[in-house]
């Protein structure tokens, strides 16, 4: 494992912890898209079907379990927690996320490494992760104001993407048979979706002002 991959995993983990902390500390999930969180939980569950069949390292297995548990915990809080669920912006979070799921499933049935249950779901999870942020970005766009923690959450998610791309470049240069088409193309799509958000995040940081997205 190289330093970029590790930095990517850590920023990914931090983004999830920032979100959990925000929900726990403020007892509010205002500004957070439940649909994006449900998609991420689905991404982790379908990608880590190999948890019991292919052992890679203790680090990998532990992180997989942590990602499944933390993403499920966020969804649970937003749907079921007595106080937290009251602050959910249901009226603003109207993205048709089922279409994303169906589209990714069809794509995974067409483009995959091998036509097996695990491989198809692995490809599905990669495609779904690429677009899972869309409901969140639409929600931020609609609400206009972005509170600091939500901004940081998306910032760390974006940082995770950037580090993973560096990781793939590094692996491509150092490993002889590194194949990455499905991951890399999906990863580039995913990172491109953040570019717009990052631009406004940078502007607000430079001006030391509150993050505002144009409507």
């Amino acid at each position: 494992m190289n330093i970029f991959r590790f930095a990517g995993d850590m920023t990914h983990l931090i983004s999830i912890l920032v979100l959990l902390l925000k929900i726990y500390a403020t007892k509010s999930c205002a500004g957070i898209s439940l649909k994006t969180q449900e998609l991420y939980a689905l991404v982790f569950v379908t990608r880590y079907l190999d948890l019991f069949t292919d052992f890679i390292s203790v680090y990998n297995s532990v992180m997989k379990v942590v990602f499944i548990l933390t993403s499920s915990a966020i969804v649970w809080c937003m749907r079921r927690h007595r106080i937290v669920k009251r602050s959910y912006d249901q009226a603003l979070d109207t993205f048709r996320h089922l279409f994303l799921v169906l589209g990714c499933l069809v794509l995974a049935l067409i483009v995959h490494d091998k036509f097996t249950f695990q491989e198809v779901f692995w490809a599905f999870s990669i495609y779904l992760e690429a677009v899972a942020i869309l409901p969140q970005l639409v929600l931020l766009q609609r609400s206009g104001n972005v509170d600091n923690l939500t901004g940081q959450y998306v910032f760390f998610l974006g940082a995770y993407r950037a580090f993973y791309i560096l990781n793939w470049i590094y692996r491509y240069l150092t490993e002889q048979h590194f194949r990455l088409w499905i991951s890399c193309i999906s990863g580039l799509v995913q990172t491109a979706l953040y570019a717009d958000f990052f631009y406004y995040y940078y502007i607000s940081w430079k001006n030391n002002s509150k993050l505002q997205l144009p409507s």
Binding site: D9, I56, N60, R171, E175, F178, L180
Partner: peptide, 10 residues
């Protein structure tokens, strides 16, 4: 198990 692809990533 997957030394040549990105399936050893998270």
């Amino acid at each position: 198990a997957f030394p040549s692809s990105s399936k050893d990533e998270l």
